[in-house]
Design a binder for these strands. Structure first.
Lengths: 341, 341
DNA sequence: ATATGAAATGCAAGCGCTTACATTTGGGGT
DNA sequence: ACCCCAAATGTAAGCGCTTGCATTTCATAT
């Protein structure tokens, strides 16, 4: 019989090594309390049988799974991909495994995924952004589940979070645009419903321009779903106005890339014909031509910091206060300066 | 007492509803065998207490976790992101949860992740490409673990796989390039060590050109790690030759995007000064200017098909045979035609 | 009313593991 | 040689859940 398709258990190893299951367990979990000769014998059998402890059983008694859950809107694009990768690397570094789901930006799906993560005994959970039903936070709190919000940071929100201030960052970019002389602003925002990051970014622009005294009608906001194509279409719509904007500010780089692409199609030169800005500074931002003026977000740093913060919360219960991460404006070719009136 | 931080168990629900744990369990798992009145009472308590079944306990007795593991080289870029997203969506559709790890293209890490997935009781595992140590396949086989290879398809390999023929696809692209009159070929390949997809793609080019009688010295291959920057640097190196190539064929779109970007920097026009081709047809391919001639890979379809195939393997043990997916050449502006000598 | 059997529910045995506690072992000290 | 105690190992009680089998319930037939 060349193969036995039965998965070996602790008991099998114990029998094979002629010891009790307790000893085998100890060899694996606290090797220093068992004498070398025994340990060697046991470990040899472990190797020979190809024994791997049963996760479920272990989780049940240890009441720990060393699993961290994360629910992200989508893994399909670079916005979360890089941060998520860093998050998982750091998790792995510290002995945890990542359980991911994507919600496709749909709250009901997010809630379902959340329950699934809880049921699976995730030791902690990473969520993107603040915006969700209070009942969800109640549920999490009632289960004593450590939760960390990432990709956003609001000083006055008590939830532990690792991220940056979307509103202030976008406001700063808005001011830069203003200083470049732009007075007719088009905005392509991601869907703000249920997405506080998108929401805050738009607010940041309002802050910037209205404080400067820009008439409201000079600020036109279009809201579209995430995507290159969507960005392009929104751009076309904005530019079709009687008095088109001199700058189109996009809620993220993907939308901006779509705008740039569409501009090329429409034979509108950037930045002479129109300026375009993005947000996030993903690779795309440097690939398009001209490169995007955008807000650089430290994705990898955010991912790593999130992992550490969450594990700390899980292991020692301490959660913050965390400082916001710094974002930074990257000025590149897609933003032009407007000479006098 | 506003909160009880104790997690309710089946037993708590049973007591609260005045029934046995068996009945509660049945309400949750086979609702039709319990009479409506009882069911209502039980479910009300379930809701009131916020009960969620303990995953570990359930997994232990059911010997199923409804979890599918996937190990991908990286989630950081679009190559796997889109397919992975589709994979997870389809998994979710069919009631499974995705457990992902990334190996960072490192075999030792992949092996470790693999064992972790097995230990966690994944019902099945998705792996990218064929190339890995035989001992790993033995281990998986000895545990009766359903495994599906994706992103690759080799007719003569008995492992169940969902993917396309990297070699044939690249060969076809090579022939197209030949037909466009190119006789000096530069190739930027991803690292082939331990990466059969990259390996096969290079082989495909060899097939195409050597069969046509191209002298070996006219085909220069550089191998670099994945990345925009790396692609750019390799491009610069290729173009620095005394007799530079007329076309630079890249192992994937990311490398190609780097090459395009670098060409712009070097003031080399595409395709007049040099042609560039990619592979994968991710969004990047249409964003760069000119857009990349590349091989379109049906990522979403592949992800969805992989999910279905793997679940079928898990649930009914049937695995294939699967047909290869079709890739398709996309001709865009980055490939130019050379007029006769 | 009573018998009857199908439907509904309860009982209790594990699933594989960890760990508190009990027991055995063995190496000094006298 | 004997006792003592620390070190090593074994024993067994669960962790929370599912499920085969036993028991109860109750609508229907008589």
């Amino acid at each position: 019989m060349p193969k036995k398709p039965t998965i070996p258990t602790l008991d099998d190893v114990a029998k094979a090594a002629g010891v009790s299951t307790a000893t085998v367990s100890r060899c694996l979990n606290s090797p220093d309390v068992v004498v070398k000769a025994t340990k060697d014998r046991v470990l040899k059998e472990v190797a020979r049988l190809g024994y791997t402890p049963n996760f479920g059983a272990r989780a049940m008694v240890a009441r720990r799974t060393f699993t961290i859950g994360a629910i992200i809107p989508t893994m399909e694009n670079a916005i979360f991909a890089r941060g998520l990768q860093a998050f998982q690397e750091q998790l792995h570094e510290r002995g945890y495994t990542l359980l991911v789901s994507s919600s496709s930006y749909r709250p009901e799906i997010e809630e379902e995924q959340l329950r699934s993560l809880v049921a699976r005994g995730a030791d902690g959970i990473l969520l993107i952004g603040y915006a969700r039903d209070a009942s969800i936070y109640d549920y999490l709190a009632s289960r004593n589940m450590p939760v960390l919000v990432a990709w956003a940071y609001e000083a006055d929100n008590p939830l532990p979070s690792i991220g940056f201030d979307n509103r202030a960052s976008m406001r700063a970019l808005g001011e830069l645009v203003w200083d470049h002389g732009h007075r007719r602003i088009g905005v392509i925002s991601g869907v703000t419903q249920g997405n506080d990051r998108a929401q805050r970014r738009v607010e940041g622009l309002m802050d910037a321009f209205l404080a400067k005294g820009l008439p409201a009608e000079n600020l036109k906001v279009i809201e579209v779903p995430y995507g290159i194509k969507e960005g392009g279409e929104a751009f076309a719509r904005l530019m079709a106005a009687d008095v088109p904007p001199t700058v189109v500010m996009c809620g993220n780089d993907v939308l901006a890339a779509g705008a740039v692409q569409r501009a090329r199609l429409m034979k509108i030169r950037i930045p002479e014909g129109v300026s375009i800005t993005g947000f996030d500074d993903i690779e795309l931002a440097r690939i398009v031509s001209p490169a995007l003026t955008t807000v650089h977000v430290p994705h990898r740093k955010m991912g790593r910091a999130s992992a550490n913060a969450l594990i700390d919360m899980v292991e020692s219960g301490i959660s913050g206060p965390f400082a916001p991460l710094e974002s930074k404006i990257k000025i590149r070719g897609s933003l032009g300066r407007l000479s006098g009136p």
